[in-house]
């Protein structure tokens, strides 16, 4: 018959293997296994989202406050981005603006959220609201094109 020691070692081995998979899932891939319970959704419409992807970061002053949850194309052919924002950051006024920015010269793209002014007329953004003030991604080809045509006009 097999000894208790072998059973114990096999149990430890299985445990080590499963915890390795969990470490890979949580620490390395940073997946949200527990579901995204503590977040609310905002939407924003852009002209061009450049290289933005699902799960791209949403940053306020460099601090990640949420992630892009889905990207779709509206009936008027403008990209519509849905953002999951952490509920601990729920104090953004509806005068806030979003822009698609690039980290570094060749880095990946993220959404920069700039909180707007607050006065009597502004309200806080809540689940499902759309941010009106958006600035699209800089596309290198467009910039070069503008530069070329701009110099031709002179």
């Amino acid at each position: 018959m097999i000894s208790k020691r072998i059973e114990l070692m096999v149990g430890l081995f299985l445990l080590a293997g499963i915890s390795a998979i969990l470490v890979l899932g949580i620490k390395v891939a940073d997946s949200q296994l527990g579901g995204n319970s503590a977040s609310y959704q905002l939407t924003a419409k852009f002209d061009n989202i450049g290289g933005l992807k699902v799960r791209s970061a949403i940053k306020v002053g460099g601090v990640v406050v949420g992630r892009v949850s889905s990207i779709s194309l509206d009936e008027d052919f403008s990209p519509n981005v849905t953002m999951d924002i952490d509920t601990q950051y729920n104090q953004f006024p509806d005068s806030s603006s979003v822009a698609i920015l690039t980290s570094g010269l060749l880095g990946e793209q993220f959404i920069g959220l700039t909180p707007g002014f607050v006065d009597e007329e502004t309200e806080l953004l809540t689940n499902g609201d759309a941010i009106e003030d958006t600035r699209s991604a800089m596309v290198l080809e467009d910039l070069i094109g503008q530069f070329l045509y701009g110099s031709n006009d002179d």
């Binding site: 018959m1 097999i2 072998i6 059973e7 070692m9 096999v10 430890l12 081995f13 299985l14 080590a16």
Partner: peptide, 16 residues
């Protein structure tokens, strides 16, 4: 099952 556990020990644990 006991046979499987013994083999898991030989094949798995000892390769660890």
């Amino acid at each position: 099952l006991p046979l499987l556990i013994k083999q898991l020990y030989i094949v798995g644990v000892q390769s660890l």
